[in-house]
Simulated scan of single mutants.
Amino acid sequence: MRPRTHAWLAAATALLLLLPPARQALESSMTLHMLVLAPLLMLCGALIAGALPAGSRARLDAWNAYGIAGLFATAVVLALIMIPRLLDLAVTDWRIDAAKALALVACGGALRLSWRRAGALVQGFFLGNLLPMTAAAGRLYQDSPLRLCDAYLLDDQLRLGQLLVARAVASGIAWFAQLVRALVRREAAGLPQPDSPQPLA
């Protein structure tokens, strides 16, 4: 399918995820809320960004040198999403939930537009801040004897904490392996070393 078709389908999916049936199902669990719903919304944003006209991309690139602005905005949004109070408010207030969803869609678009522009150094700095923060949040969820979110049970909080740590570790290993593979291929081909690994999206 063409990028524009992907974008329309992604926009429709994002709207469906905001409707009460999908929202209630995916926000019924803390784990589903953070590790399924949030990535789905980000994926929708990435697909929408892939269909932007060349002129719009050029205007965005003008203030997104080396992908720094987009990756910084992504890191801020993801940090906010991990705050337990925000998760509680998103479950109880549809306006905050809609704002959260729009922020995640924008976050996915920013990541799509920024990752290719960012070199290995900028990507490493981004992941070097985001992944330890994610792991720290996961440890907090695991170690807290109290429910940090009133909307979710303690066992769900513990499970999410374990999965956050695992995802942070796996993401770091995957990025580093991708970087090494790209460098080895370039060296074997006798080409200059790349500025970055292959883009994620």
Rank of each mutant, 00 (worst) to 15 (best):
G124I: 01
A46F: 10
L17W: 00
G70K: 04
M1Q: 11
V105L: 01
R23T: 08
A90W: 02
T134V: 14
W115T: 09
A79C: 13
C107M: 02
G45Q: 00
L164R: 00
A120W: 13
L183I: 10
D143Y: 05
L80A: 09
R57T: 14
P39Y: 11
L17Q: 00
H6Y: 06
A177W: 14
A51S: 12
L111K: 03
R85C: 00
L19N: 08
Q142L: 04
L47P: 03
A51N: 04
R85H: 10
L154N: 03
A168W: 00
I96Y: 03
L113H: 06
M133K: 06
A103P: 02
P84Y: 02
V169G: 13
P20N: 03
A188D: 12
R59D: 11
L80F: 13
L163D: 10
Q142E: 07
L89V: 08
L41K: 00
R185H: 10
L113V: 09
W175V: 03
R4D: 15
D143Q: 13
A137W: 04
Y66A: 15
W8S: 07
V91L: 05
A106N: 06
A174W: 12
A51R: 04
N64H: 12
C107D: 04
A182N: 03
A189K: 06
G138N: 00
A177L: 15
L153V: 10
T31S: 02
D143L: 06
L200C: 11
G172S: 01
L43N: 12
N64T: 13
L148H: 01
A99Q: 04
L18K: 02
H33V: 00
A73E: 07
W63F: 15
P192D: 08
R186A: 15
E187P: 03
V77S: 02
L18F: 06
G109D: 01
I68K: 09
M133A: 15
A58W: 08
P39N: 11
A188E: 12
A118D: 10
P53K: 12
H33Y: 09
A188Q: 14
L158C: 05
G70W: 05
W175T: 05
M82R: 07
L52S: 04
L140A: 08
A49R: 01
E187C: 07
R2D: 15
L17A: 00
N129W: 12
W94Q: 15
I68E: 09
R167Y: 14
M1N: 10
L163Y: 11
S56K: 07
V122W: 03
K100G: 06
R95V: 10
I83F: 09
A75S: 14
D155W: 11
R139F: 13
R2W: 04
D156A: 06
P197F: 05
Q24T: 06
T74Q: 14
H33T: 01
A188W: 07
L26G: 02
G70D: 09
W175K: 04
W63R: 15
A79L: 12
T74S: 15
A188S: 11
V77H: 03
A46T: 14
R23M: 04
A103C: 04
Y152C: 02
D97Y: 10
L89A: 14
A65C: 07
P3D: 01
A106W: 07
L89E: 01
L164M: 14
Q193D: 08
R117C: 08
A46V: 11
W8Q: 05
L183N: 09
V169I: 15
M133P: 02
D150I: 13
P192C: 02
I81E: 09
L153T: 11
H6E: 08
R185Q: 11
L18S: 10
I96V: 15
